Amino acid sequence: MTAAIDFYFDFSSPYGYFASTRIDELAQKYGRIVSWHPILLGVVFKTTGSAPLPQLPLKGDYAWRDFERTARFHGIEYHRPTHFPLPTTQAARAVLWLQNHHGEDLAAAFAKAVYHAFFVEDVNIAEPAELVKLADALGIDGRAMDAGASSPQIKEQLKAEIEVAMAKGVFGSPFVIIDGEPFWGFDRFDQIEAHLKSGRPTALRAVAPPDTSKEKKPA
């Protein structure tokens, strides 16, 4: 059986949102499935010492410009959110609860709905009531999801999932691992497709070592 594509994302990540609109289609093209893994960049940043791009000196203004430019270039709907960054913990926990109780497909559909609500409709997804509405629209019992996402079990599961992700080298969103090969960022999707197309552990051209066979040897 072909290995799944591991897709790590944080709902506060614009590039993660862009990737979420493409990852399933790309996987299906090459006969793969996607395992969606919600993470919290705030936890990761405590290890890497980083911060949300718009909050970084000099990089911030560029990042906002690049979000809009990237969306236009790829034909992806995007609206700069009013509330940014914001806590995404409850949304991440909700995805895990849905995976446990309703399966991967519905959980992924919910994740896409959350991303669209935040980066297109400017919905404050940090509000549990908004997540309930999104769930209800998909035929999910939103109140049951909210209660389940707030349970100690799911809280511990998210914590453990993030620890496992970081142990695998995940440090950003989107982060994709295929056949053990890591790819960070939406701008790596061409390389991801090259990898999938080749069917080899890595599709990137390796630089051959210099030929030293003709070098003079010391007398």
Rank of each mutant, 00 (worst) to 15 (best):
I125Q: 02
F171I: 01
P57E: 10
W97V: 13
F9V: 11
P128D: 00
N124K: 15
K159M: 06
D6C: 12
I33T: 15
P152W: 10
F183N: 11
H101W: 00
M1F: 15
E127Q: 14
H74A: 15
A165I: 06
L134K: 03
S50A: 07
Q153H: 06
V176Q: 14
G139C: 13
A208H: 08
V43P: 10
W97L: 09
P182G: 06
D66H: 07
F73E: 06
H102Y: 09
F18M: 15
V123F: 00
R80S: 12
F73Y: 13
L134C: 14
E193G: 04
D136P: 05
G169S: 00
F110Q: 00
V43H: 08
F171H: 04
I162G: 03
E121N: 12
A129N: 10
Y30A: 03
H116T: 12
P14H: 06
A167T: 05
S173L: 02
F171K: 03
R32A: 07
A109D: 15
N124M: 02
T82V: 12
A111C: 05
R200V: 00
A111Q: 02
K155P: 00
R200Q: 13
V170F: 00
Y62P: 07
A208W: 06
I125Y: 05
Q99C: 09
K112T: 10
N100M: 11
F7E: 13
L86N: 09
G103P: 06
F73H: 10
T82D: 03
A206W: 10
A117Y: 02
A108E: 02
F186H: 13
V123A: 01
F183S: 06
